[in-house]
Design a protein around this nucleic acid. Structure first.
Lengths: 227, 227, 227, 227
DNA sequence: CATGAATGAGAATTCATTCAT
DNA sequence: GATGAATGAATTCTCATTCAT
């Protein structure tokens, strides 16, 4: 998605667009919408419904009612179901939105990344910057699917997407000979995501300095991965 | 708990007791696994209520009703509330029970652990053995508290306990000079728990060989920690 | 409410409107009989929910479930909570409705009241006529608040409203010199309301002739109040 | 009941016995117990169960559970049902106990009463003294039966007993020619009880001076009844 | 497209009462 | 007699979703 666009933007611009609630993002988001009931709308109410983010982040999935989202968006209850199949669908939309934003961060940061060491540090910085501007969003978006519904929805969750991103990077570092050869990049992707999620939550709770958290993580990740 | 007893048992015996649903544990567990504010009830129904585990694991917190637990235990609805203050209290009891069990595994494995490398491998083995015998229990017990209730309950969750265990081990390895000096053991404890949780889920979903998962994790952890 | 309308109606007409379940009252009552915090809903279900009266009167507060009221009204359980905050709120709405109706009776009767003696007799007549047409309503509406909820709700209960009405009348009779000068009208208002409530219940149980009950009360009240 | 005893006691002694929680009352209370399941017991637990009074007064009927009464009495749940048929039976026992106590007050005060005027003032004084020593007891004991259960229990409630007492007194005053001849003493009994109940509640809420409340009531009652 | 009144299955919890010990 | 663990019908209230307008 929007990779060509992202390429033509400066890194700062791309991030700014995201952080300022995607006023320029309109051109991109609808693209991903398939012709089906979900996320079909382009107009005002779709943008309004993005108020879901605030609610899901602050209250969590189970404490947020479709009604709340509609109300916060200033639309009627019924309108909610013109945009989302159901509550879970709405949550996944939020989740994907967050993943999209993060992906841009990751990509733009990677563009300038040189060595494995610099790259990891850059990425973590990007992630925590994002987290700083969007407090709680990652934690909320990484909510375990099993908590949301019983049956496996088959949906690709943000965890998977993000793990992929890391896996690809590590694959790249394997090719450049910076990462050790036996590295199982898929597995390592999940391990890193898990570590970041838990470590991030810990740092948040303990109100640790962002720089310290990043440094602590980076050191361990670099040691773990470097040849 | 039962540390003196655990000492007198062989490691296998101790684990077996746990894994076989604690037939020998009765003398110890029911007395202290409670501490929940509700009257410390012993007797038939309390033990029966341990059926909660199966349900929380299979369906998750939100899909398990107090009624289900009572029914599975073969007792009346009201009996549930003689043993637990409310649903959350019941879940936390399950959670602590699992943490207790795991702690024994970790302790007994550590007892024989020699080097950092062996130690990590041992621990991971222990954890995955436990997970193998108690499928899903760890994942369920590590459920994020924020998903369970709105307000912070102030309870120490299994994640914290487990992170502590790892932190202490790493502290030990720092003293023996096996772990690198600048290691922030607290943070690293959380990172490892997060990684194991996510990696474990990944391995479970992909039906990976346990040995491979352990090996993959161990390699990374050792690299990350060793001097 | 509807004071100007009541003025233009004959006394009989105004009462009839009330007693015949307010078919003409629709224009006025639904708009203000609410004031309850929950959205001011008009429309079918609100009027239907007035079936609460029958239930509260026949079964009393504790024997009437929100569900019963909904069912009697032919609406769903959930609808109940669109109109009332909770069960108590619903009861208080009934209570206020009854007080409103009674107030009109009292006012219209007072309009024609001449002397203290005539006035008292008129009022009692009005009250018992109302009670006759709405059997049990006053008794139910005068239910002691302490029976309904633990904490003081701070709400002005019908007893207070009605005591006020009597107090004002007595104040008037003090001014005209018909009532004795030292009369504490506030206190006397409560005494009279209490007496009517208990005496009414007694008369109802004993199936006494309405005229006799009125006469018995009137005689005592007149003696007590007249200069 | 115990009229001969009451007669041989001084008024002060009789009241003291009541107010000091009836240490001497044991000889009397059991007398009234019939040979049936209810109130059969004489021993320790019966006296203990009298803690019901505090609970019914403070929390009201619906907020007081048999369990609470048992607990307050320091006996087991089951013991409750050895003494009372059910919760309502227990409440009525409390109610009768209060009525008994009040009756003694009323009788002893009446013994010294001379004129109608003095008599009324004496009685009111007695009642409010009792209420002062036993705050809330009368209000609780006068709880309307309809609030307690659906079907008429056929039990004679305290209201009735008390109304009777007043009726008898008024009958007496009719005979002495102090009360006006046409007085319907039965009805008037209820009117007075109702007035006292409501007026007492009002005075209590407004924290009026007891003397003022008594004076206010007495004046009205005397005016209403005197020839 | 948009609405919001209406819905009713379902959730958590309570409590009067029983009965085996 | 005394106990208190056990019960399950019953209660209040919620909330994801629908559908007539």
């Amino acid at each position: 998605m929007t990779t060509e666009e992202a390429g033509s933007r400066t890194r700062e611009a791309a991030e700014a667009a995201i952080l300022e609630d995607r006023q320029t993002g309109e051109a991109t988001a609808p693209d991903e919408a398939d012709g089906q009931g979900v996320a079909v709308l382009t107009g005002a109410s779709r943008r309004k419904l993005e108020s879901r983010r605030k609610l899901f982040v602050e209250r969590g999935y189970h404490e947020t009612r479709p009604q709340d989202i509609s109300k916060a968006a200033g639309v009627g209850h019924g309108t909610f179901y013109l945009h989302f199949e159901d509550k879970l669908d709405c949550f996944l939309a939020f989740t994907e939105e967050a993943a999209d934003e993060l992906e841009i961060f990751v990509q733009t940061h990677h563009a300038v990344a040189g060595s494995l060491e610099e790259g990891i540090r850059e990425l973590l910085t990007a992630i925590f910057e994002y987290s700083d501007k969007n407090p709680g969003v990652l934690a909320a978006a990484l909510t375990d699917i099993s908590v949301l519904s019983t049956g496996d929805t088959g949906k690709k969750m943000p965890v998977d997407r993000w793990a992929d991103v890391w896996a690809q990077l590590m694959e790249h570092w394997k090719e450049t000979g910076e990462a050790f050869a036996e590295l199982d990049t898929r597995m390592a992707g999940y391990l890193i995501v898990g570590a970041i999620k838990q470590g991030g939550a810990y740092g948040f709770r303990r109100r640790l300095e962002r720089a310290d958290v990043i440094e602590g993580m980076a050191r361990l990740f670099v040691r773990a991965l470097k040849k």
